[in-house]
Design a protein around this nucleic acid. Structure first.
Lengths: 182, 182
DNA sequence: CCATTTCTGATACATTTGTACCACTATCTG
DNA sequence: CAGATAGTGGTACAAATGTATCAGAAATGG
C-alpha cells in the first residue's frame, strides 16, 4: 500500500514538520487529541498533508513516538562515559524543555504493551538505559543483577522527575544520580 | 450539574459494571478505544447506561482509572508489614491477572500530567508506595533519601514486570525485591 | 398504596474524524 | 525540455462518536 512517500527534500521536511507537530499536540491535548486535523493545523499544513505521508492515524502516532524514542535513545548512548554533572544537565533538559519527548517515550511504551509491532522500538530506550548504566559501572561487569537494580532506580527516578518535577535542577539530579549509582 | 446518580442498589451495580468494563476495553483496545458504545457493549448494557451514570466520556475514563488506582493503593497499604514472600505473590498477580488494573494506574498517571484534577488521585499510588517502603524499613526513618531510592527502584521494577514480563514468578519477584530492599 | 424520584432503553441528531478523490502544481529524470 | 513521478490542497462523504430526548418502567419514601 504505502506508495513511496516523502521522496523529495520538501516532502521529507513536511513529513518531519508533521512528526514534530504530533508531539506538540500530544503534549497539549494527550493521545486522544492526536488526529489528522489537529496535527496538520499545528504543523501549519493542510489536512491532506497529514493523510498523504502516513498510511493512517496509527501510523502517524507510532512514527512520531518512535522517532522521539530513537532520538532520546541516541542522546542516552551519547552520555556513555560522560561525567555525572553532564548527565544531570541533559536529564534536566529531558524533563524540562524536552518534556514532551520524554512523555512520548512512555506513551510509546504503553502503546507497545498492546501492539507488538511497536515492541522493538519501545525497547530501544531500555536497551539504551541498560547500556548507559553498564558504561558507568564497568567494574561491575560480573554483577548484572546490581546493574539491573540501578536501571530500575533510574527509570523510577525519571518518572518521578516527570511526575512530581522533583528533583528538577541539575544539582538535585546529580545528587540523586550519585546516590543511585553508589 | 451531575444530578444525583446511582442512588438505587441496581444503579450502583450498573455503574460498577461500566467501570469494570472500561478497564477491560482499555486493556483490549487502549485509551483510544474507550467510548460510550464500546464500554456499554462490554458491560452488556445499552448505550444510554454509559451516558446516564457519567457526565461525559472523560468522567467515565477518569472514574475508572481512579477506582483502579484506589484499589491498588489499598492493596499496597494492606501489604505493610507482610512478609516479602506475600508481597511477591501479590505483585505477581498484580502484573498477571490484574495486569489491566496495573496498566490503568500508569495510564492515569500520564493523564494526570495534563489534567490537574486527576493529580491527587494519581498520587495515591505513589503515596501508598512510599508508605509501604517506609513500613518495610522502619530502622531507616532518619534516612528518607534511602527510602526514596528504594521507591524509585520498586517503581522501575514494576514497570519492567509489566513491560518485559520479567521477573514474573513469585520466586523471581521475591529475589528482586530482596535485592532492592537490601 | 400513591406520589415522587430514579432509572431504562430506544431513537435521533449534530459534530468530529478518517479517508477518498481529483484537478492542479512542483519536482525529478533522462 | 518533455514525460513521468511526486506532492498539493480543496472538497466531499461515510462512519464513528458524544450527547440530547422522552415515554415508560421500576424503585423509593411517606
Amino acid at each position: 500500500m504505502a506508495a513511496p512517500r516523502a521522496r523529495t527534500a520538501k516532502g521529507r521536511l513536511r513529513r518531519q514538520l508533521l512528526l514534530d507537530a504530533v508531539l506538540r499536540v500530544l503534549e497539549q491535548f494527550g493521545a486522544s487529541g492526536v488526529n489528522h486535523r489537529a496535527v496538520a493545523a499545528e504543523a501549519g499544513l493542510p489536512l491532506a498533508a497529514a493523510t498523504y505521508y502516513f498510511s493512517g492515524i496509527d501510523d502517524m502516532l507510532a512514527s512520531a513516538l518512535r522517532q522521539a524514542t530513537e532520538i532520546q535513545a541516541r542522546v542516552l548512548a551519547g552520555l556513555a562515559g560522560a561525567p555525572l554533572r553532564t548527565i544531570a544537565r541533559v536529564l534536566s533538559a529531558y524533563v524540562g524543555e524536552h518534556r514532551y519527548a520524554a512523555i512520548a517515550q512512555y506513551e510509546l511504551l504503553f502503546l507497545a504493551m498492546r501492539n507488538d509491532s511497536l515492541r522493538e522500538d519501545a525497547d530501544l530506550w531500555y536497551r539504551g538505559l541498560d547500556d548507559a548504566v553498564a558504561a558507568r559501572m564497568p567494574d561491575l561487569a560480573a554483577l548484572p543483577e546490581r546493574r539491573r537494580q540501578v536501571a530500575w532506580a533510574v527509570d523510577g527516578l525519571l518518572i518521578q522527575m516527570l511526575w512530581r518535577g522533583d528533583p528538577s535542577t541539575p544539582e538535585e539530579i546529580e545528587t540523586a544520580l550519585a546516590a543511585v549509582f553508589s
